[in-house]
Computed example of a mutant assay.
Amino acid sequence: MTDEAATRHFRTLFISDTHLGAKASQAEMLIDFLRYHDAEKVYLVGDIVDGWRLKRSWNWPQSHNDVVQKLLRKARKGSTIIYIPGNHDEFLRDFTGRHFGGVEVKLNDVHETADGRRFLVMHGDEFDVVVRNARIIAYLGDWAYDAAIAINLVFNTIRRRLGFPYWSFSSWAKLKVKNAVNFIGAFEKALAEEAHRMGCDGVICGHIHHAQLAEFGDVSYVNTGDWVESCTAIAERYDGSFELIRWSEVVRTHDHKKAAAPRIVPEQAQIVRPTEAA
């Protein structure tokens, strides 16, 4: 199966929290995802480059560079690429309105779907009280997160040797901690309220590494997830519906390149159609 034959085409793709520069970044998984998915427009919804970790220690393997080259290649082939910086790549907020190799930097954007709905696109750290008001605590939390991810890597190395598929221990643990669950709920509600205040039908964000398609009253909440724990992305179909793609569930191991191209299985249970958003 060739790349061209296997590629799924969408109107828009939304990707966030790839954390290139961090050792835990699943760059190779992302490269495969980009190989089999294409779109007229691609939103990079923040924390694509992890400036926080690069300041502490430089880590930029070839696979991270390949992700950048893959995105630039899509831009050269006609895709519109919009980069909305997050807190980990906040240095790019100083370049708002600039274009780099066909990639435009914006603080946020309003995306209109094929069926005419308007979605506020932003990273979401603006509504994280810890990030905004207690930067030291945010950095401490980032170090704790690194530790959890390190445990996750060891855990999945053992699972892979035993023949089990990838599973995010850190993501599971996060959803078992009451405070974390409460924070996620408050974050989702705050973003939905901001979208409503802006006169939009919904919001598309990242930041909290928890992919989600949900409804808050008449406002749609869409979170792209991440490429450290869950390896997820959001795709807009040509009818304006959204699809949550869990690539880690499609690709069983990092060695899947040795086998035939994977069968793409959309998460049918989590597709938001225009009629459901009304």
Rank of each mutant, 00 (worst) to 15 (best):
Y145T: 07
R161S: 15
A114Q: 15
V177R: 09
F127A: 01
D109H: 11
L162Q: 13
T157A: 12
I184A: 03
L162K: 14
L191K: 01
H196A: 11
G141Q: 06
A147Y: 09
W172H: 08
H123Q: 06
D146N: 13
A144F: 03
T113H: 10
D109A: 10
D142Q: 06
F127D: 04
K106I: 11
R161P: 09
N182F: 00
L175V: 02
L153Y: 10
R161E: 14
L120F: 02
G185V: 07
E112M: 11
G141P: 05
I158H: 05
A150F: 15
I149F: 02
F169L: 13
R118C: 02
L153V: 10
G116A: 03
K178N: 01
D125T: 02
V129R: 13
R135E: 04
N133I: 00
F164T: 00
H111A: 13
E193Y: 04
R160M: 00
A147S: 11
R132D: 02
I158L: 12
E126K: 05
V181D: 07
E193I: 00
V181S: 08
V129E: 15
L140G: 10
I149S: 04
D128R: 06
D142K: 03
G163R: 14
I184F: 06
R160V: 00
V129W: 14
A190T: 13
W167L: 12
S171K: 02
M122T: 09
V154K: 08
R161D: 14
V181N: 04
R132T: 06
N179E: 06
T157D: 15
D115F: 03
A150I: 11
D115A: 08
A144H: 03
W167C: 07
Y145E: 12
P165G: 06
I184Y: 06
E194K: 14
R160L: 00
V130Y: 00
F119D: 04
R159Q: 08
G116N: 04
V181W: 07
A150M: 15
D146Q: 10
L107D: 15
I136H: 05
E194Y: 08
R135S: 01
Y139A: 00
A147R: 12
A186V: 04
L140M: 14
D115C: 09
L107W: 09
G185Q: 13
E194G: 06
F127E: 04
L162M: 14
L191I: 01
I149M: 06
V131N: 14
R118D: 02
L107C: 05
V181G: 03
E188M: 07
D142R: 07
I184T: 03
N156A: 01
A192G: 13
S168M: 01
G163D: 14
I136G: 00
K189E: 12
Y145M: 07
G163N: 13
V121M: 03
E193Q: 10
D142N: 08
V177A: 06
G141I: 01
N182C: 00
A148E: 07
G185D: 13
G116R: 07
V131C: 13
L107G: 10
H196C: 03
R135I: 00
H111T: 11
Y139E: 03
E112Q: 15
D115S: 12
V129M: 08
N133R: 14
K178I: 00
Y145N: 11
D125F: 07
L107Q: 14
V121R: 04
L191P: 01
Y139R: 01
L175Q: 12
V154W: 10
